[in-house]
Simulated scan of single mutants.
Amino acid sequence: MSRPASAAPSARTRLRRLPEKAAYDRAAINAILDAMPVAHVGYVIDGAPVVIPTLQWREGDRIYWHGSSASRSLRAGAGMQVCVTVSLTDAMVLARSAFEHSVNHRSVMVFGQAEAVTDPAAKRAHLKTMVDSLFPGRWETLRPMTEQEVKATGLLSLPLTEASAKIAAAPPGGTDPDEDRGWPVWAGLIPVALATSTPVAAPDLAPGIALPEGVARWRFGEGPR
Rank of each mutant, 00 (worst) to 15 (best):
W65A: 05
W65L: 09
H66R: 03
G67M: 03
S71V: 01
S71A: 10
S73V: 10
S73Q: 13
A78I: 02
A78C: 09
A78P: 05
M80Q: 15
M80K: 03
M80P: 08
V82K: 01
C83A: 07
V86A: 06
L88G: 04
D90N: 11
A91W: 07
R96S: 01
S97G: 00
A98S: 13
A98E: 10
F99W: 11
S102T: 02
N104H: 08
H105Y: 12
H105R: 04
S107M: 02
F111N: 00
G112H: 05
A114H: 06
A114Q: 04
E115I: 13
E115S: 14
T118A: 09
P120R: 04
K123E: 00
R124S: 12
M130A: 10
V131N: 03
S133Q: 15
F135C: 11
F135E: 13
W139C: 05
L142W: 10
L142S: 03
P144H: 09
E147Q: 13
E147R: 12
Q148P: 12
K151T: 15
T153E: 05
T153V: 08
T153C: 10
G154F: 04
E162A: 01
E162V: 05
E162G: 02
S164G: 14
I167T: 14
I167M: 01
A169N: 15
P171G: 11
P171L: 13
G174Q: 10
T175E: 09
D176T: 06
D176K: 00
P177R: 07
D178T: 12
D178R: 00
E179K: 00
E179R: 10
D180N: 09
R181E: 13
G182M: 13
G182R: 01
G182F: 12
